[in-house]
Design a protein around this nucleic acid. Structure first.
Lengths: 247, 247
DNA sequence: GCTTGACCCTGTCGCAGCGTCAAGGTTTCT
DNA sequence: AGAAACCTTGACGCTGCGACAGGGTCAAGC
């Protein structure tokens, strides 16, 4: 048989067969005078074994091990390990499909694939016109991705529907073009810091990635006067954390 | 933020981020005077979106499409298609695991992953000492892999337990070192050809890969006298097929 | 004898998504 | 001052082949 014939017989491409030769999975057969490879039935039997094993999902080097070993005991080990690996893949795929189903079936406007807890929280807060609130939503989504999320949502839930909080956002929005020495800044910072629940602070580890790099970068995200507010709030919160740590 | 900080924050490697820059998924941010990249919170938000989408299983170019589109309608299409793809993968994995389970739970000596039908057939035929019978088993496994299998097993099943068939194998085995003009050859070939059921011939398409290349190669697999028998049997069977075709 | 088409040969690049050196420069802690 | 821990670009590695490129070979038909 020539390579195309054995390929058609076993049901693989001739390119694959040459690849198997190249990687030493199937020994190079003899050649005719014109250079064509000449295959025997035994080659076909081996090649068929290779095809069956690769179809099961074994890698080519695992196939090589199995073929070389020929004991059958090794085969069982490899197959068991393979099955475990497939099981992992399967559960991974199922998990992804669950999350996809949530996005596809869920509320129409679920434009971001976030955790269920955060999705619920954001669902209770209809989008207001506040740019600052929109920014905070983005930041929450960011924290959600980092894995920090979790426990802080419960602490934030009551705030979402609090009209006083909305008023705070409006005061912050109003500082968009203001100067950094605007007199409205200190009282707003104090009020904002007071509004942050302890639960939120407790959930953010002080040596984690959130505190390490986020701080300064966060300020660049705001207009000058608003950044000043954020700076003061962060200072106040840091003081509260330190106080709690020593007290 | 520097690259390591944003990487830790979002939960990806800095190498991945540079890769995203390289493929244009995330725009290159500004640099400090020392060449270090400087990231903003907005970068982190985008990067987090990228991470969530890739975790769902989207390819990087699909992620790029979704980010560029930003409509949300496109997203749903991509996600639906992705879900269909994942469903295919999942069923494929399950199929493989079914076959693995058959091998792992099944009879201890199931050393080859073959189709259930062939496994059953081979199970009914305990391994005799006949080298020719062993060769035929190999050939059956080979045909099983090619997909020809199927219907011929039913036709072969009654032969497997027939003592007369075993006698034929013994006569064939006896020709191992014989000359090609051994007088036992013609009668054995006739008896063998007569023993082959019509169902087997019907299942093998005459223009398929089996007939195209296997014929000559098959002969090399036998000792000279045995090959002569096989040659005669094949000729007789070919005549039977032709007769059936014209009759 | 010449063309056409179907094979065959070797060798190389491409693919997804980064991991992993290599070989240097910067910053920071001690 | 030296080490640890960052950062930079660039290039190769991994899987299992598919898809070229640039040729030779062979059988059949004109």
């Amino acid at each position: 048989m020539r390579i195309g014939e054995i390929a058609a017989l076993v049901g693989v491409t001739s390119r694959a067969i040459r690849h198997y030769h190249h990687v030493g999975l199937l020994p190079e057969p003899g050649r005719r005078s014109n250079g064509y490879r000449v295959y025997s039935v035994r080659d076909a039997v081996v090649l068929a074994r290779i095809r069956r094993l690769t179809e099961l999902g074994l890698g080519l080097d695992e196939v090589r091990d199995v073929l070389a070993d020929a004991a059958g005991r090794e085969l069982m080990d490899v197959l068991a390990e393979l099955d475990a690996d497939l099981a992992r893949q399967e559960s991974g795929i199922r998990e992804r499909r669950r999350r996809l189903a949530r996005l596809l079936d869920g509320p129409v406007s679920a434009e971001e694939p976030v955790s269920p807890a955060l999705a619920e929280l954001l669902g209770t807060v209809p989008t207001t016109g506040s740019p600052m609130a929109a920014k905070d939503r983005e930041h929450l989504v960011l924290l959600d991705t980092t894995g920090v999320g979790g426990e802080i949502y419960a602490a934030l839930a009551p705030l979402a529907e609090d009209p006083a909080v909305h008023a705070l956002y409006e005061r912050l929005d109003a500082l968009d073009g203001a100067a950094v020495d605007d007199p409205r800044i200190p009282p707003l910072a104090a009020d904002l810091a007071a509004a942050v629940p302890d639960g939120v602070l407790a959930a953010i580890p002080s040596d984690g990635p959130v505190m390490t790099g986020l701080g300064e970068a966060l300020l660049d995200d705001y207009a000058p006067a608003q950044a000043e507010v954020v700076r003061r709030v962060m200072a106040a919160l840091a003081a509260r954390v330190a106080e709690r740590g020593t007290g």
